[in-house]
Every structure is written in C-alpha cells, then in structure tokens.
C-alpha cells in the first residue's frame, strides 16, 4: 500500500511535468497563439503573458503554484481558470447525469437481452458490435436531429449519445464475466454443494468487480472526449465545449490547468477503483 501511494505521488508529478512539457516547452506556443501574420511586439507580449521568457524551472514552478492556488487566468478572458471550470462543470452535470442513467439503463437492457436467450444474444451482440464502431459525433448529430424534430430534451439526447459506447462496453464485459464465472471450477463446486441463491449472487458480484473498474476507466475517457464533441454539437456551454474551444484557440493556461486537474482526477479514480475492488472482491485484498 505504501509503495502504491509513493508511486501515485510520482505519477502525479510526472503527469504535471508531461503537461508542462507538452504545452509550454516542446513547441514555441507564442507563434501559434499569435498567428502567422503577427508582428514581433505581439509575439513578445504573448511570451511575457505566458511566462515564456522565464527559465524553464521558474516557469514550471510559477505555473504549478498558480494552478494549485487558483490564480491561473485564462489567456483570452483573464478570468481565473478554476472558477470558470466550476461554472462550466455545473452546466455539464446535467448531461453527465443523463449519461450515467442511460449507461446503466442501456447496459442493463443489453445484459438482459444477452442473458435471456441464446438466439437473442446473437442479435444483441451483432447490433452492439455494429453500433459500438459508429463514432460518437455521427450518433450525436442524429440525436440532435431527433431532439429538434420531436422536441426531446437536449440534455437527455446529449446524455444518450454519450452513453452508447460505455453501455455496450459495460454489457459485453459483464456478460463475458458472468459466463466465465458460471463455468469457473469454484462456482461448479459451490453449486454442487447446493449453496443458496444469495450466496451465489454474492460470488457473482466478486466476479463482476473488474467490470466496474473497466467502466470507470472508460467513463473518464469518454466523458472527456465524448463530452467535448456532444456539447459542441448540442450547443451546451459546458466544460467539454469550453475545453474544446480552449484547445482550438490555444488557451494554454486553461489546457495546462485542465490537464493537471484531469491527472489528479485519473489518479484519484484509480485509488477509488482499488477501493471498490477491495470492497467487492475479497480475493484482491491481499494484493495491496
């Protein structure tokens, strides 16, 4: 556990350093921000504002400190990034909430469809495999069309577009693990001993623990990539739309702060996953 904690701290430090290298060191961002026709004075003022004239170590310390203290400001709006992030996050919560509901509803339906009958399973599997490949921006545009035509809630449709792939991922993983668990020697022995349904259900939950880890990892991936696209298509001014806009107009302070926050979020999620697996599956407890 101690080694894991130390490793996590180093992972965060390296993650922040990687973001810093990516946005502030590798290419000279001043020219890209200023554009091809900018004069020397404009480029110089941008360099000053982005701390690009300072030595690398000082620049890194300034940026990290400003991010942690919440002083880092957007290059274009001059508003504190953290406050802006909170405001945008509030807007995105509805979409994320709908997305989560749809993930479990769709995922549950797909699992039920595959568990009920073998013939249905084949069709559900084929449908899932086909739909899973269709990019989120195509399904989102079709759902936007549906929401405009039939007056459906924009947030609900955006949540549905966001939920399609994770729900398929969740259902296929859960079905696979249920099938594996049913055939596992310890399950067969437990069944032969005539263990009750509740005990068997608890055993099944142990087997399903990794599925939730996969889901949460996929969620963070899709909430970032999918939310940006879905909010852009539906015109929702949330954190995804803001992040996409910042990336396109190279608002480097926003990109740096968001990537630092996300690094922290991913490490926190990893710890949360470990705790969930620890709680759900007693066999994993000795691993930490």
């Amino acid at each position: 556990m101690f080694t894991y904690a130390v490793k996590s701290v180093f992972v965060i430090i390296f993650g922040v350093m990687f973001s810093f290298m990516l946005f502030y060191v590798l290419p000279d961002p001043a020219y890209r921000v200023a554009g091809g026709f900018a004069d020397k004075a404009t480029v110089l003022s941008i360099r000053k504002k982005l701390h690009l004239n300072e030595p690398i170590t000082k620049r890194f310390v300034t940026l990290t400190t400003d991010t942690v203290m919440g002083r880092l400001e957007s290059f274009y709006t001059n508003q504190p990034v953290m406050i802006l992030a909170m405001v945008k996050l509030k807007v995105s919560f509805t979409v994320i909430g709908f997305g989560l509901i749809f993930i479990f509803v769709l995922g549950g339906l797909l699992v039920a469809g595959q568990v009920i009958s073998r013939r249905l399973k084949k069709w559900v599997e084929m449908l899932s495999n086909t739909v899973a490949v269709v990019p989120v921006f195509i399904s989102a545009i079709l759902l936007l069309f549906a929401s405009t035509k039939w007056g459906l809630s924009k947030n609900a449709c955006a949540g549905l577009a966001l939920a399609i792939f994770p729900s398929i991922l969740l259902s296929s993983n859960v079905v696979l693990r249920i099938e594996e668990a049913k055939q596992a020697p310890h399950t067969l022995v437990a069944r032969a001993f005539g263990l009750g349904k509740i005990v068997m259900f608890r055993r099944m939950i142990h087997e399903l623990a990794p599925s939730f880890v996969i889901l949460s990892n996929a969620l963070i991936f899709f909430l970032i990539a999918g939310l940006a696209v879905v909010e852009e298509i539906f015109g929702i001014p949330g954190i995804g739309h803001w992040f996409l806009l910042s990336a396109l107009r190279l608002d480097l302070p926003v990109l740096f702060a968001v990537s630092v926050l996300l690094s922290l979020g991913v490490v926190a999620l990893d710890i949360f996953n470990k705790i969930i697996v620890w709680l759900l599956d007693p066999r994993q407890r000795n691993a930490y």
Partner: peptide, 19 residues
Amino acid sequence: LALRTVPPFLTGLALAALL
C-alpha cells in the same frame, strides 16, 4: 504510467492544435 494520466484526447487535440 504518468503519460496515461493525461487523457489522450486532450493530448491529441492540443498537439494537433500546436503542430
């Protein structure tokens, strides 16, 4: 491992914008 903590879409989009 730290590379994986920065979401790939963010990295890809920012890199494409920068380059």
